[in-house]
Design a protein around this nucleic acid. Structure first.
Lengths: 212, 212, 212, 212
DNA sequence: CTTTAATCGAGACGGTACGTCTGGTCTTGTT
DNA sequence: AACAAGACCAGACGTACCGTCTCGATTAAAG
């Protein structure tokens, strides 16, 4: 189970509440907001629990009670703010959907969210829990979305049936991560070239002519 | 100019040496060795200048004199130990060479070197100098090697002439970086599948039958 | 009014009991036992309300409800366990009684009880309530016992009639407290010398020859 | 060796200095001053290393480098400020000198110094080093002074030759400590009565008539 | 029987201070 | 100069307690 999940500790709706004073949601929210803001403003380098506490007005000890590590806190703050932001409106064409999705993703990485993701990945290199939380909370859902698009394309005959979905998605997304991490440009033109190049190998023979 | 290059401060070749006691090479070497060892043993999380000083027997202030940041030190320690290790013996087939090169690279990432690279990338997320040094010292040379192989393949007619080299290399290497950073497996079988998949789109039409 | 007295809140003997759930005596006892045990085992330094709560199995808030301060709790735990322990069997001779009483007291201070008294006095230096409680609960009764012996001696003609009782008792007991607090030895021989020395100045001239 | 002595670490006057940056005396002094001031103002209860650091403007880590415990710091701050303050001008009469010395001592205990001593003794109950330092730095010198007076009195024939010096001094001083620690009054009249009472048993028979 | 008022356990929360660790800077004497 | 040694400031770390608080569950007398 990832750190985030354990931190959230979803209240059982079932029957009797746990004893003791209930957790204060306002506090919880304030911490996550502050975490997100700090991450967005200064990056992981200046992200400290002390500053989150100061900014959120929540006691340091309270933060330590609920988050096991800096990474977990960063991760949860990130998710709380970003999670709903990435939705994919399905059109008729899988190729077009993918292109759109990748373009959006690149735009995300170029902005504030990218800065935060960089921090989380960095933090994760010395804390596996953080990576796990990032996988569960962000990477896997994103992959599921991509996978869904690909499968629709295969079902409709637009894409080849023998695609290895994980590899196609890796080919589309991994370069974006790496470019971001290595401070290389992520401009639309480059991303567009990448998408086209990967998609070229994915189209079903019959549909190949119509690709662009 | 990257951090490493500035740290090295190459002695002027001009006749008259600078006044004062000359820099002690033994010390310099000891620091890099200790840096590498610590990085390899405990990862970036426990890599501190204090520990490098203690381990190398070099005074902390001496380290601060020569390296501008933790990342630069890690990077240089890494390069000093790893640089010569990656050579590519060219065979007749570009496809075979690439496959070999990628496999070696994956093996590298799975081991000690991978652990260190993770640390450097992590450190780089809050220190652009470190990323720049990593690019100059490691990524660019690796890309040059890959590029050379691809160009040989194109010249020999084995690979398509319209390949976008940067994208092909990104498709081959970026997933490896990402899998490593996200603690996903890098096993040979998976890497082999990746290589095959990318290469499939690179072969010249005439050579396609002979691919595997 | 001392802290202890206010903490005990003696139930009114008056007919109508207060409404609501009555106080649980088991709990009360458990707290005092735990307080005594902790004080005896680890001294004042590690005596915390948290630990008393943990050890006694009583909720922290319950302890805070009934005891106004750490010192008050320590004091009451001490009294509950120690109070009955010091009884003085009167013999014919006041001198002999005093000697015995002082010897017992020294023995007390050398042991567990001494350790606890040290803690209470220490705690009292930043909490006057604690000192007051210690005076009321321990010092004054002890002085009363000593005073009684002295007065018997005076009445019987064994001791001089012009004795200043408070000073004699101070001369007998204060050194014991100080030796304990300053980690000096409290061995029987030393205590014996002290008693003899003080008593020497107290005997009535007629009885002086029979003193020892 | 006591904590104080080890904290002071007197520089060896011998030959070669130790390497490295020498200790900053200003800093050292500032800490002791702040320690004394805090102790005098708020007592041991609010005496924390954090506040000493804040008040003195010295980094907390520097304080931790030089003083092993709160008690040691308090003790040294106390000694630095108080040590020279207690001198006894010898007159012709031992009895008069003692009376004067005791009176002065009581006055000391009633004031700021007394407050600090209370704190040190309290702290010492959970830290033997502190008590040891207090013994070495304060109690023993005071006893030596008292002893000297008594010995002069014996030599001059004013006092009995068979006095047990340690017990006499205990009889004179211990009550003062205890009265202070237990918040009992230390007024001059009471102290005067104490002195007279103890001295009464000390005078040589020949001199007894002249005592008061 | 219900109220009603109290006790009690559980635990969240804001705080303060702890003692440690690291990062950087600086000031020495030695080489 | 370079270097070792180490003092110093700054500040974050994670932990331990403090004292207050909000709950629900319990318990008995009073209505």
């Amino acid at each position: 189970m990832s750190a985030v999940a354990s931190a959230v500790r979803p209240r059982p709706v079932t029957a009797h509440r746990t004893p003791g004073r209930p957790r204060c949601d306002v506090t919880h929210k304030a911490v996550l907001d502050a975490a997100f803001a700090l991450l967005a403003e200064d990056g992981i380098g200046r992200f400290t629990i002390e500053r989150v506490a100061a900014r959120s007005g929540v006691a340091r000890s309270t933060i330590y009670r609920w988050w096991p590590s800096k990474g977990a806190l960063a991760m949860e703050g990130f998710l709380a703010a970003v999670a709903p932001e990435i939705a994919v409106p399905p059109s008729g064409s899988a190729a077009r959907d993918l292109r759109e999705q990748v373009k959006r993703f690149a735009r995300l990485l170029r902005g504030t969210v990218g800065r935060i993701i960089r921090g989380i990945i960095a933090e994760g290199q010395s804390d596996p829990e953080t990576v796990a939380a990032f996988m569960d909370g962000f990477v896997t859902p994103r992959r599921a979305e991509g996978s869904a698009i690909l499968q629709r394309g295969i079902a409709s005959g637009e894409l080849r049936a023998d695609l290895e979905l994980d590899l196609v998605l890796a080919g589309l997304y991994a370069p974006l991560y790496v470019w971001m991490l290595l401070n290389e440009s992520l401009d639309d033109e480059k991303v567009e070239r990448l998408t086209r190049s990967v998609l070229a190998g994915c189209l079903a023979p019959s549909a190949e002519a119509a690709s662009d």
